[in-house]
Amino acid sequence: MKKYILIIAFISTVFSAKAQDLTTFFKKADAFFKANVSNGKVAYDKIHANQAQLNEVLKIAENISVEKSDAKNYQAFWINAYNLSVIKGLIDKYPTKSPLDNAGFFDKTKHNIGGKNITLNDIEHKLLRGNFKEPRFHFVLVCGAVGCPPLISKAYLPNTLDAQLEAQTKKAINGSFIQVNSKKNRVQVSQIMEWYKEDFKTKEMDEIDFINKYRTEKLEGKWKLSYFPYNWTINKQ
């Protein structure tokens, strides 16, 4: 009986430690974003001059393990991990004018996160999009460029994640993500909706239906949809 009690106590300790690490990660990530992000832009000069805060939160992220069945914690962790890793990737190549100026930035450069040695594309396409059908991910995963949806000055947290996903999607759909010509019934949208067309369409819904789900001023009637070029300039303050 004593043996089983010790095993249970050990398991409880391990789970408690993991929960504590995750809580610490969210807290440190939140502090980092608040200190270094404003109006969707990142203070790369400031971070480059003193990288301790960024390195600290990424060090915590190295050994965190979250099961995908724990969906909110899992999604919040990997969204923040992606955004932090983008910043780290740009800082490692700083000064730089664009993430695309660095070969393999998204598909070759590895990041030690969550017990894995993975690329940014792995996080986005395998761990997030590969496990969840959630088009709103595209409005919170920020690739370090002006054309991306804006980075928020706080961490994504499990208890507020759905509201944050919703808010950022509405902000994009009602903002610069879309350009509407009402006279000609033409709407141009970010190339994100072209690259990931399958994420925004279902049997019951097309891209215009998706837009109208979040847009305050609905697009009534028939509209011609096209895409405007992506701006890959670094999202620097």
Rank of each mutant, 00 (worst) to 15 (best):
N83R: 10
N83I: 10
N83T: 08
L84Q: 07
L84N: 02
L84M: 09
V86K: 01
I87M: 10
K88L: 07
G89L: 01
G89Q: 00
L90D: 06
L90V: 10
L90H: 03
L90K: 03
I91D: 06
I91V: 13
I91P: 04
I91R: 02
D92K: 11
D92S: 12
D92M: 04
K93W: 12
K93Y: 13
K93T: 13
Y94S: 00
Y94K: 02
P95K: 02
P95G: 07
T96Y: 09
T96L: 06
T96G: 00
T96Q: 02
T96E: 07
T96R: 04
K97L: 14
S98T: 04
S98E: 09
S98M: 00
P99K: 06
L100R: 12
D101W: 12
D101K: 15
D101E: 15
G104Q: 02
G104M: 01
G104K: 03
G104N: 03
G104F: 00
F105I: 09
F105D: 00
F106G: 10
F106A: 09
D107Y: 04
D107H: 06
D107A: 07
K108R: 15
K108T: 15
T109K: 14
T109E: 13
H111E: 04
N112C: 07
I113T: 03
G114R: 06
G114Y: 01
G115I: 10
N117S: 15
N117M: 14
I118D: 02
I118E: 00
I118T: 00
T119H: 05
L120I: 04
L120C: 01
L120M: 07
L120P: 05
L120E: 06
N121R: 01
N121G: 08
N121H: 10
N121S: 09
D122L: 10
D122G: 11
I123F: 03
I123V: 08
I123K: 02
E124L: 02
K126N: 14
K126I: 13
L127N: 08
L127W: 02
L127P: 03
L128Y: 04
L128R: 00
L128C: 01
L128E: 01
R129Y: 08
R129D: 12
G130M: 08
N131S: 14
N131E: 15
N131V: 11
F132I: 13
F132P: 11
F132Y: 15
F132N: 10
F132M: 10
K133L: 14
K133E: 15
K133Y: 14
P135L: 09
P135W: 11
P135H: 11
P135A: 00
P135V: 06
R136L: 04
R136N: 13
R136W: 07
F137I: 05
F137E: 09
H138E: 02
H138N: 09
H138L: 00
F139C: 05
F139P: 03
F139S: 10
F139N: 12
F139Q: 08
V140Q: 00
V140H: 04
V142W: 06
V142M: 05
C143Y: 05
C143V: 07
G144A: 11
G144Q: 03
A145L: 10
V146M: 15
V146F: 02
V146H: 13
